[in-house]
Design a binder for these strands. Sequence first.
DNA 1: TTGCGGTCTCCCATCATGGGAAGGTCAAGT
DNA 2: ACTTGACCTTCCCATGATGGGAGACCGCAA
Lengths: 149, 149
Amino acid sequence: MNIGDAAKATGISVKMLRYYEEIGLVRPANRTYSGYRVYGEKDIATLRFVGRARDLGFQVKQIAALLDLWRDQSRSSADVKSLALAHVADLEQRRRQLDEMIAAIGHLAHNCHGGDRPDCPILTTLGSESPAKVARMPKRARTGFAAVA
Amino acid sequence: MNIGDAAKATGISVKMLRYYEEIGLVRPANRTYSGYRVYGEKDIATLRFVGRARDLGFQVKQIAALLDLWRDQSRSSADVKSLALAHVADLEQRRRQLDEMIAAIGHLAHNCHGGDRPDCPILTTLGSESPAKVARMPKRARTGFAAVA
DNA sequence: TTGCGGTCTCCCATCATGGGAAGGTCAAGT
DNA sequence: ACTTGACCTTCCCATGATGGGAGACCGCAA
């Protein structure tokens, strides 16, 4: 299997397959004599694991930890669970931040009639007082969402 | 007012004040003879506007648009409102993605007893079938949250 | 053999943010 | 007046996950 086929089989782009290898998340693929990467069943299974964890919003470092646990026959399920729960807590915190932002902006927009005239409480609020009681973000991940675009 | 004072007054770091100037989000600050940036009342007001929009999760490009509208006496409030609503829709989509992830992982964790033994459905699910019916993310912003760390 | 599509490596860009180095400035205290 | 320390300046680099593209090579089919 060449890298393109592996990409199709795992839903991970060719670029990312090379990147995951480069940063050591997955073991370097075997190579043909001429340098092409060759993927076997095991590689594909690992990559699918990675892809699914990624889809669940795990960061690469967390995925690396999950992979270690996955391969470790003697792991305790408590280890896995705590990692998962920590991630859930993280996601939930982000969700709360989103909720606050949505509520604050929604409130402002609600009070804006939206007609042709210029008076709009969205801008005046942003320009003067606190725009709503949106808690100052904890330094980590301000709003986040590295718009991958 | 020097840049450090401006940072304290606006809650925006010194680094970011310079960055916002560099990318043209705000007009270059006046300088003293020796090159220090000097901020006046208007500058601070503008920067506070920027900071609050940022706290509401607007991206820099959107903040630039909001600033234009803020300064444009002849704007229509409809323009502002549609920008705000588009942003809300964006945030809501991200929230839905988070919700899906939270539900999926929470479900997996719930079925994991968490004891000393290695059997854990979290890993086996990630390793085999679809980890849950988490919709494949739309290419934009996979999970996002550029962990600013 | 030619041609096309896949692959290789390398470098660059994103977005918002911070770190740090090397050097200039300013105000307060001696 | 001089030192000291806090502040400011610019410049470069790093982050995380991803994509784009250039220039060169490989492999297979017509």
